Computed example of a mutant assay.
Amino acid sequence: MNNTFSDNNQIGLVSTFPELVNTNFQGAMNAICWHRDWDGDFKEIVSKLQLKDNVTEVFTEDLLALPLSEKGIRAREIILNDLQLLTDFGAQPSLNLLKSYERDEELDFISTDVYSYHVDRSPVSTDTFLCTYHGTASEFLPNDQVEQKTLIPEIREKLKELHDGPEAEFEAFLKEYFFDLHYQPKPNAEPISMGSGHLWRLAVDHPSQKVLPCVHRAPVENDGEYRLLLIC
C-alpha cells in the first residue's frame, strides 16, 4: 500500500520547516513532506491524555500538565515546537486526540465525511498542514488514480434527483453541499500513507493555486487505539 516517498513525483521532500513552507508546489507535486525520524514516545502522551469526545482538542496546558518519561518529554517538545512553528507562520494549528470522526451515512450512494477521499477548498491562498504523531496515518492518492464522484454517471444521476431543481443551478448545488470535493479511487489505485511523525503540507483548491489539490483522507482507526493528529 505504501509507496516510497522519494520515488514519487507527487511528493516534495524537505528537511526543515522553512523549506516546508517556502517550497513551491509545481507540476504533479502537490504534497510536501518534512520527513523526520523522532525518538519521542508519543504513545505515552496518548495514554495519559483524557478523551472527552470522539474528537478532543488538546491544548498546550494539557500537554504541560502530563507527568512523562524522558522520551515522553521529548515527544511533547516536538509537538509543542510544531505548534509554535505553525502559529508563528500565521496558521492556526489544532492538536486532536481522536477515537473516530463522525460518519456521513445520510446518503447510501455518496459519502462526504473525512474517511472519503477528498480535497480541501479555501477562498483564500492557503495550504493544509497535518502530522499524525500516533495511530493510523492519513493517506492520499495521486490525482491520476482518482475520479471525481460527481462525474461518475450513476452518482451524478442520483445527485440530480436529489437536487430536483433547475439544471443551471446544479453545479452550485454540488459545491454548496461539498459533493464536488470527493473522489473515488480508480481500480488498482495505490494509496500512499503519510506515516508517523512527518509534517505535511498539502495543496488545496483555491483560485490562485497552480497545481491540482491533494486528494487525501482520514484512515479507519485501529480498534482500541486513539490517534494524535495535528491539523490546520
Results as ranks from 00 to 15, higher is better:
residue 1 M to C: 02
residue 4 T to V: 12
residue 4 T to D: 14
residue 4 T to K: 00
residue 10 Q to V: 13
residue 15 S to C: 05
residue 18 P to L: 01
residue 19 E to C: 03
residue 19 E to A: 13
residue 22 N to D: 10
residue 23 T to W: 01
residue 24 N to I: 00
residue 25 F to L: 00
residue 27 G to D: 05
residue 28 A to I: 02
residue 32 I to V: 15
residue 36 R to V: 15
residue 37 D to N: 09
residue 42 F to P: 13
residue 47 S to E: 15
residue 47 S to I: 02
residue 51 L to F: 05
residue 53 D to F: 09
residue 53 D to K: 06
residue 55 V to I: 15
residue 55 V to W: 04
residue 59 F to R: 12
residue 61 E to S: 15
residue 62 D to L: 02
residue 64 L to G: 02
residue 74 R to A: 13
residue 83 L to P: 02
residue 86 L to F: 10
residue 87 T to N: 07
residue 88 D to A: 13
residue 89 F to D: 09
residue 91 A to C: 11
residue 94 S to N: 03
residue 96 N to Q: 13
residue 96 N to L: 14
residue 99 K to E: 11
residue 101 Y to T: 06
residue 102 E to V: 08
residue 103 R to M: 07
residue 104 D to S: 04
residue 106 E to D: 11
residue 109 F to Q: 03
residue 115 Y to A: 06
residue 117 Y to M: 08
residue 120 D to T: 05
residue 124 V to M: 06
residue 125 S to Y: 03
residue 126 T to H: 00
residue 126 T to G: 01
residue 127 D to R: 01
residue 128 T to M: 12
residue 143 N to F: 11
residue 145 Q to L: 00
residue 146 V to Y: 07
residue 149 K to F: 01
residue 150 T to L: 10
residue 152 I to F: 05
residue 154 E to L: 13
residue 157 E to F: 13
residue 165 G to A: 08
residue 166 P to C: 06
residue 168 A to Q: 10
residue 169 E to H: 02
residue 169 E to G: 02
residue 169 E to I: 00
residue 172 A to R: 14
residue 176 E to R: 10
residue 178 F to A: 12
residue 180 D to G: 03
residue 183 Y to A: 04
residue 183 Y to K: 03
residue 183 Y to T: 06
residue 187 P to S: 09
residue 188 N to Q: 11
residue 189 A to N: 15
residue 189 A to M: 09
residue 193 S to E: 03
residue 194 M to P: 04
residue 196 S to H: 13
residue 197 G to N: 02
residue 198 H to T: 04
residue 199 L to T: 14
residue 201 R to F: 03
residue 201 R to E: 12
residue 203 A to S: 12
residue 205 D to S: 14
residue 206 H to R: 05
residue 210 K to N: 08
residue 214 C to W: 01
residue 218 A to R: 03
residue 230 L to H: 09
residue 230 L to E: 10
